[in-house]
Design a protein around this nucleic acid. Structure first.
Length: 532
RNA sequence: GACCCCAUCGUCUAGUGGUUAGGACUUUAGGUUUUCAUCCUAACAACCGGGGUUCGACUCCCCGUGGGGUCGCCA
């Protein structure tokens, strides 16, 4: 009766699983459960299993399966048993395990632990409504519980489609939760549950129990929403003589309104986080702290270091509100940790996606890791742009980036010929148009004199800064805030920076000027001047 | 409604009978800075309520209150 696939399991081995259903995109709640299962298993050199729960044929879709697998891979959460890379699901997809369920279903039926039920859904629904209205827990009445074999045969012959119900015994069920301690239920309040639509269509509570046994799952670590399923599953286990795994129910991830995180709280699929430019290490670090902490003040962990530190005892009981500000902070932090080469690789797809640049031999796809020879061109002009230059551009925005996707908006002025901005943006404090012109002329004059090959950040800074201070003194604005000892360099630097970028916030003018090059810089200053 | 779970700053949390209740994010103020960001410094900010137990409760117990989850021929 036992599944041959699992006969080599070492006794006492820790085996955990994540069992998502491919009925929607892989979201942060499931990902976090996967993470905890993975960490727990790996900490004890155990096995982490990925099982696809696709018993709901109506709603299960191949694209969602793909999404589960890809999201897990992207996050770096590897599974030891489960779908293979090539899409071989082996015994890990429930829709491939029909005969197994059928065997156990027949066993339950033949031992009268389960029975056929012919009640209509309308009938059942009306019953539930009534029971709730009189303050009783809604549960199955037991109408079909004592049907004779003849009656069953007769109904079937009439073409009625029965479901299979499991007899829930009227007794107390208790279990020890690794996180919450003892939890007790009165099973008499549950009522006989449907465990299969028919012999080949098992339902969750049943399929889950069978699979967890067959796959020798030692620890069931899952979300709190499953606490009320646990007594049902335990009762099915008992009827089938299965050993009981250990249970740990994780606190829920909550939305800002403190209800279970769901679609209405906004973007939640892992895929979407990836697309908007979050790093996998950000998500990992963020998720693990939603319901767990190491008990120290250390807050930055890699997946590998978590494997060492993780402990189920340190899991939180209360639900945790999902805090996107913290996610952004962490992402910025991890972005700042990246080497410039790596960050460039990560940002390039966004630059290409937004149509700012493209591969020189368009449309060749981006190959990683990038070779020094990789060539790109600016989409608008068709002019070549070196990888070296792209790296420089990205490097001056590294500390300003919260999400990779922001790179395009931040740096577009490097790739555009015409800058669109209001002339008012050129005004620093209370400068008059005339003063702005004067300021730009001055910058232009100074920059003009610097030779092309010396047009770099250091030289620009060395030459322009003293001039900016001098200029501030000339302007001598009595009304404005105190200019400080050095004088307010903004009278020169602000109009210059805006002229180059067309933005009210950007990296510094010297580093930008160096990347842009002398010719473009002078041209942009002239254009800015002509706006006034 | 019934059953179950939970409860420390706005948020994530440390704390396991005696602490100035700690850290991080956020926010605010300052410093660095032409801007933005980074970085540095500082500040604001919490034990749900009531009873016990105890010399002493954030910590243990009980009762409230509040929040959440579940109650499918979904998982």
């Amino acid at each position: 009766m036992e599944d041959q696939n699992f006969k080599f399991i070492k006794p006492g081995e820790i085996r955990t699983r994540i069992a998502p259903s491919p009925t929607g995109f892989f979201h942060i709640g499931v990902a976090r459960t996967a993470l905890f299962n993975h960490l727990f298993a790996k900490k004890y050199q155990g096995t982490f299993i990925l099982r696809i729960e696709d018993t709901d044929v109506e709603r299960s879709k191949p694209e969602y399966e793909k999404d589960i697998v890809e999201s897990l891979k992207w996050l770096g959460i590897e599974w030891d048993e489960g779908p293979d890379i090539g899409g071989q699901y082996g015994p890990y997809r429930q829709s491939r395990r029909e005969e197994i369920y059928q065997r156990y279903l027949e066993k339950l039926l033949s031992e009268d632990r389960a029975y056929y039920c012919f009640c209509s859904e309308e009938e059942l629904e009306a019953q539930r409504q009534y029971q709730m209205s009189i303050g009783e827990p809604p549960r199955y009445s037991g109408k079909c519980a004592q049907l004779s074999k003849e009656e069953v045969k007769k109904y079937k012959a009439e073409g009625k489609k029965p479901v299979i119900r499991f007899r829930i015994p009227a007794r107390k069920v208790e279990f020890d939760d690794l996180i919450r301690g003892k939890i007790e239920f009165d099973a008499s309040l549950i009522g006989d549950i449907v465990i299969a639509k028919d012999l080949s269509t098992p339902l969750y509570n049943f399929a889950c129990v069978v699979d967890d046994f067959e796959m020798r799952v030692s620890h069931v670590i899952r979300g709190e929403e499953h606490i009320s399923n646990t007594p049902k599953q335990i009762l099915i286990q008992k009827a089938l003589n299965f050993p009981r795994p250990k249970y740990a129910h994780l606190p829920l991830i909550l939305g800002p309104d403190r209800s279970k995180l769901s679609k209405r709280h906004g973007a939640i699929s892992i895929n979407q986080y990836q697309k908007s430019g979050y790093l996998p290490e950000t998500l990992i670090n963020f998720m693990v702290f939603l319901g767990w902490n190491p008990g120290t003040e250390r807050e930055i962990y890699s997946l590998a270091s978590l494997v060492k530190e993780f402990s189920i005892e340190r899991c939180q009981k209360g639900g945790a509100v999902f805090n996107i500000k913290r996610l952004d902070f962490l992402n910025g932090f991890y972005i700042r940790q990246k080497s410039i080469d790596r960050l460039t690789e990560l940002c390039l797809p966004y630059l290409i996606e937004s149509g700012l640049i493209e591969g020189k031999n368009n449309p060749e796809p981006l190959k990683l890791p990038l070779k020094e020879k990789a060539q790109f061109k600016i989409r608008e002009t068709g002019k070549e742009i070196s990888l070296e230059t792209l790296k420089k551009i990205i490097s001056i925005y590294q500390e300003r980036l919260k999400k990779l996707s922001e790179i395009s908006e931040l740096t577009d002025f490097f790739f555009k010929e015409k800058l669109e901005y209001d002339k008012e943006l050129l005004r620093w404090r209370e400068m008059t148009d005339k003063e702005i012109k004067h300021s730009l002329d001055k910058s232009r004059k100074i920059l003009y004199k610097i030779r092309g090959e010396e047009f770099n950040k250091e030289n620009l800074e060395r030459i322009l800064l003293p001039e900016a201070e001098k200029f501030a003194k000339e302007i001598k604005k009595p009304a404005g805030p105190p200019a400080g000892e050095a004088g307010d360099r903004g009278y020169i630097l602000w109009p210059l920076r805006v002229a180059l970028t067309g933005k009210k916030a950007s990296a510094g003018p010297f580093e930008i000027a160096e990347i842009l090059g002398k010719e473009k810089v002078l041209k942009r200053i002239k254009k800015a001047r002509n706006k006034l």
